[in-house]
């Protein structure tokens, strides 16, 4: 009986081990650390993949469609951060107050965006 119980225990632990292994293996290169704009300033986080959330600074958006290159500034109320994104300007970019960027920070405090995330239009409530 004890052996049978042990077998059941091992059998039920197996999926957890497999899952843990898969998750551990998948973790590499896919983790992005959340920082606020104030935290990013003056910190050495240049090696890490970061995710930063901020308000889009009105009138800071410069878009060159021929490259295409999108440059803008984000703020969290205290500090500002320059960001550049090589890609097509999304439709709802100007409309989005809150922008989440993922990418890396350069020594000059400029942020290279690899992934640009905006609030989806299906957001419920709080529009006005």
């Amino acid at each position: 009986m004890a052996r049978k119980k042990l077998r059941i225990l091992l059998l039920s632990l197996l999926p957890l081990f497999v899952l843990g292994f898969l998750a551990f293996r998948a973790f590499e290169n896919s983790a992005a650390y959340y920082y606020t704009i104030s935290e990013v300033q003056g910190k050495d986080v240049s090696e890490q993949k970061l995710r930063v959330k901020g308000q889009l600074v009105e009138d800071s958006v410069v878009y060159d469609a021929s490259i295409p290159l999108l440059e803008f500034r984000l703020t969290d109320g205290n500090s500002y951060m320059k960001a550049s994104y090589r890609g097509v300007l999304p439709d709802n970019f100007h409309h989005s107050e809150e922008v989440i960027v993922e990418g890396t920070l350069h020594s000059q405090g400029e942020f290279t965006v690899s992934k640009l995330m905006l609030q989806c239009p299906s957001k419920y409530e709080g529009e006005e």
């Binding site: 899952l19 898969l22 998750a23 293996r25 998948a26 973790f27 290169n29 896919s30 983790a31 992005a32 650390y33 959340y34 995710r51 993922e102 992934k115």
Partner: peptide, 29 residues
């Protein structure tokens, strides 16, 4: 697994004080 990955930001925010987000490559792998 997907639940864990989805809630990972909440888990890390609660226990490590720093939010860590996993992107699509995590879920794919």
């Amino acid at each position: 697994g997907v639940l864990f990955g989805t809630l990972f930001p909440v888990i890390t925010r609660t226990f490590a004080g720093r939010e860590v987000v996993l992107d699509a490559s995590f879920f794919n792998q």
